[in-house]
């Protein structure tokens, strides 16, 4: 049976709901819009729009904040974190999806905790440990710190994905004479690729946006874009507000590109939860 498209009837409740949604979007648009406009404005004090427009702030931001190396670091951190999390996380999620064993719940909880804890709570002791062993202040420290929520994230998104692959497929392959390695490479890997892509892109988005852990472990030459942005903002007054905004726009653009890429592989709602599509 199919359902008819929902009618948009203007009941008071509907008005209230759509009003709230509109208000929210106006807010979001205002937040992004004012950053965008300011980054192109020459002087903007007590008026609706800036007096003139220029792209100079971008050049200035690029120079002043040494954005090229910052972008390089961001990219490097993302690649390493994503690669390692997938390599380490997928086999673990395979075990969690397929096997029931003594202590499975405890293991699951252990992987859940890093996602539930505020990053600052474990970030501060983690940073201390990383300083002790000489990792913090370098790229390696940033990568290690970002792995803490990323590996569990891969595990938690991949486990349900593997659960929905019929285990009979693997048994069939074994009966056909495939060994463990062949089952993995020829049967599971092709089936897992969509899930791995989705999960990696989500890890990239989270890593680019991860502020706290990177902030606590990065040294001067291992800052990612979001941390560099935070420093330039808290030091505002020294730098022109517009060039900070130009940097924010670069960050936004990067995030939006990632988002567009992500949405090619995952449903928007999957960014926060595994949503069942409409059952019909």
């Amino acid at each position: 049976m199919t359902r008819p498209p929902r009618r948009i009837v203007a009941t008071p409740a509907a008005w209230a709901v759509w009003g709230a949604v509109t208000l929210f979007f106006v807010g979001v648009a205002g937040v992004i819009g004012s950053v965008l406009v300011n980054s192109f404005g020459t002087r903007w004090f007590d008026t609706w729009l800036p007096e003139g427009y220029t792209t100079d702030w971008y050049g200035q931001a690029w120079e002043e904040f040494t954005l090229l190396p910052v972008l390089g670091v961001t990219l490097m951190v993302c690649l390493l974190v994503t690669g390692i999390s997938v390599l380490v996380g997928v086999p673990a999620s395979y075990v969690l999806a397929r096997r029931s064993f003594y202590g499975r719940r405890a293991v699951y909880l252990m992987f859940l905790l890093p996602i539930l804890m505020p990053p600052i709570t474990y970030g501060i002791p983690l940073a201390t440990v990383l300083y002790e062993y000489g990792f913090a202040g370098h790229l390696s420290g940033v990568v290690l710190a970002n792995l803490v929520p990323s590996i569990p994230f891969v595990i938690l998104t991949m486990t349900p994905f593997i659960e929905q692959i019929d285990p009979a497929v693997e048994r069939a392959a074994r009966v056909c004479g495939a060994r463990t390695r062949q089952v993995f490479l020829r049967i599971l890997a092709p089936l897992l690729i969509p899930g791995i892509l989705a999960s990696s892109i989500l890890v990239v988005v989270r890593t680019v946006g991860m502020f706290e852990l990177t902030f606590l472990t990065a040294g001067p030459d291992s800052q990612t874009l979001v941390v560099a942005l935070f420093y330039s903002m808290s030091a505002s007054g020294i730098r022109a507000q517009q060039s900070v905004d130009a940097m924010a726009v670069i960050y936004t653009a990067m995030m939006l590109v990632l988002l567009v890429v992500a949405l090619r592989f995952v449903n928007p709602t999957q960014l926060v939860a595994r949503v069942k599509e409409d059952p019909e």
Partner: peptide, 10 residues
């Protein structure tokens, strides 16, 4: 996706 830092700036 924008995260808290950019939201703050905006």
């Amino acid at each position: 996706t924008l995260g808290t830092v950019l939201t703050a700036e905006g």
